[in-house]
Amino acid sequence: MMNTTHAAMGVALAAPLAVVAPELAPAAALAGFAGGTFPDFDLFSGQHRRTLHFPVYYSAAALVASAAALAPTTATVAGAFFLWSAALHCVTDAAGGGLELRPWEPTDDRGVYVHPAGRWIRPRRWIRYDGAPEDLVLAGVFSLPGLFLFDGAVRTLTVVGLAVSVVYVAVRKRLPEVETRFLR
């Protein structure tokens, strides 16, 4: 899935707080956005979906952070939403494609690495590849809370994320050629 889809999922996680704890909702949504994007910083490590992708560890840490957030402060709630969003990112990466350069030509069986098990979970390809049309639809659906329940920075980031998603989907299948031609 696109990083922007993961970010929108993180914001959507915070949507219930817009009703039950509106004073904490913006911080939770921004933390969800950040947590949704964070694992993909391992793209720069050469070990994508392994270096910063921790589906088990983020989930365990999110449980601990959620317990701390039972005494809600902006920091405890933001920490919990960051970790839940990062965990969701890692788990949903297995719903997408593999790590191949052209994921619409499925040749790679690595979806996301599970460190405690010491093995890769295979990609399910429910979302065929990052930047597939169905990925854009999913990004749009998960962006609805960011557009309608929040304002300010959350709404702005949501709009920017959707715009980036549209452009990315439009050029996605051309990127492998650009990479092999100019970056390798």
Rank of each mutant, 00 (worst) to 15 (best):
L52T: 14
P116R: 02
F44L: 15
L63W: 05
V77Q: 01
G46C: 08
G32A: 06
A132K: 01
A117G: 07
A29W: 08
L24P: 00
A69H: 03
D135F: 03
L99T: 06
T92F: 14
P55H: 03
I121H: 00
V77E: 00
P106V: 11
F81K: 01
A21D: 11
G32Q: 09
F44G: 11
P72I: 08
T76L: 08
A78V: 07
H48N: 13
A86N: 05
I127Y: 08
E100Q: 07
R102V: 14
L88F: 03
I121A: 06
H115K: 09
Y58G: 01
P72R: 13
A117I: 09
I121E: 01
R49S: 13
A21V: 07
V114E: 04
F33T: 01
A68K: 11
I121G: 00
H48R: 14
L70R: 14
F54R: 05
A95D: 05
A29I: 09
T107P: 02
A86R: 00
P39Y: 04
L43R: 04
F33I: 11
Q47P: 01
D130W: 08
S59Y: 10
R128T: 12
S66F: 09
H53D: 04
T73M: 13
F54Y: 14
G79R: 05
A78D: 07
S66C: 13
L30K: 12
